[in-house]
């Protein structure tokens, strides 16, 4: 090898290149290219995603049949499928979906709206904001789901209690977000408004409220998830209908396939609502600019 004869003790087959890079006097300059990024075509990404899912389901089914997965605890895709068909054709799938959907949506709207208004109201008086703030922080740190049994007692087994829990979860987050928005309003901007002779109401409607709109929009996607969680937990504690109730009931009667069906329906519902809220968000963002 020629590397033996060079003055540089760099071993290996790359030494020739290494030697060429070095200057007799002066430091070595690293020759490095910008890392290139290779994007696979979209179809191959989708193919991988589907392939992974199919493999997972196949493994589950085979495992359940061969016996290295206990079908009593984990069920099997085929059993889940047939249970699902029964649940949708003969069971009360649509009633459950309607109940969960309704309480989630109601909780989402009430919590977000009331929380947003409450947060914005803090702009009106710093004294009032200072008095209320510790309570809000307390409510924030309180695990609100722990109150679920109490809420059920107060609001009963029906819709109201689910809505109340979903509202409790979304309200505090919305309040804090709107309040953070209020505090971020540029003081110079307020000064400009007042120098133009604005009333407090004008400052509120033309500056503070529009300024906070993007802050509230950003909370929508978080809130839809929280509202759903609230509804499900409410149904866990006490209810006659709803996906949460079905999951709990099926678990207690060891109908594991039905648990899975309800969980899958729940995730589908959650995804639909998430997409809808994302769409709402983009519409509002466009609207907020006009």
């Amino acid at each position: 090898m020629t590397s033996k004869s060079t003055a540089f003790p760099s071993p290996g087959p790359l030494s020739l290149f290494g030697a060429r890079l070095r200057r007799a006097d002066g430091p070595r300059r690293a020759r490095r290219r910008l890392p290139t990024r290779r994007d696979w075509p979209s179809w191959s990404i989708v193919a991988f995603q589907i392939g992974f899912l199919v493999a997972l389901i196949a493994l589950w089914e085979i495992g359940a049949r061969v016996g290295f997965i206990d079908p009593f605890f984990w069920s099997s895709p085929s059993a889940i499928w047939s249970t699902g068909v029964v649940y949708f054709t003969e069971g009360n799938a649509f009633v459950d979906i309607a109940h969960t959907f309704r309480s989630t949506l109601l909780g989402f709207f009430i919590g977000t709206t009331a929380g947003g208004l409450l947060g914005l109201s803090f702009w009106w008086s710093s004294n009032y904001a200072r008095i209320v703030q510790p309570y809000i922080i307390c409510l924030e740190s309180l695990p609100k789901l722990a109150l679920a049994p109490l809420i059920i007692l107060v609001f009963g087994m029906g819709l109201a209690s689910k809505v109340a829990i979903a509202t409790a979860l979304t309200l505090v987050v919305s309040t804090l977000t709107a309040f953070a928005g209020v505090q971020a309003v540029d003081k110079d901007q307020e000064k400009l408004f007042y120098s133009l002779g604005a009333s407090r109401w004008q400052v509120f409607t033309k500056l503070v409220a529009p300024f906070c709109v993007p802050w509230l929009i950003s909370i929508l996607r978080v809130n839809i998830g929280l509202a759903l969680t609230g509804s499900i937990v409410g149904e866990f504690v006490a209810s006659q209908f709803g996906l949460g109730r079905t999951i709990l009931y099926a678990g207690q009667t060891y109908e594991i396939a039905l648990v899975w069906v309800a969980v899958f329906v729940l995730s589908a519902l959650s995804m639909v609502m998430y997409v809808a809220v994302s769409w709402l968000e983009s519409v509002l963002r466009k609207g907020a600019r006009n």
Partner: peptide, 29 residues
Amino acid sequence: IGQVGYMLQKDLLLPWRTVLDNVCLGMEI
């Protein structure tokens, strides 16, 4: 307040309003 026109160092244009509507802000108020 509102007896003089006051322009602060920053332009303080409202990002959600068009230029025309920003210029109109004082009159609107």
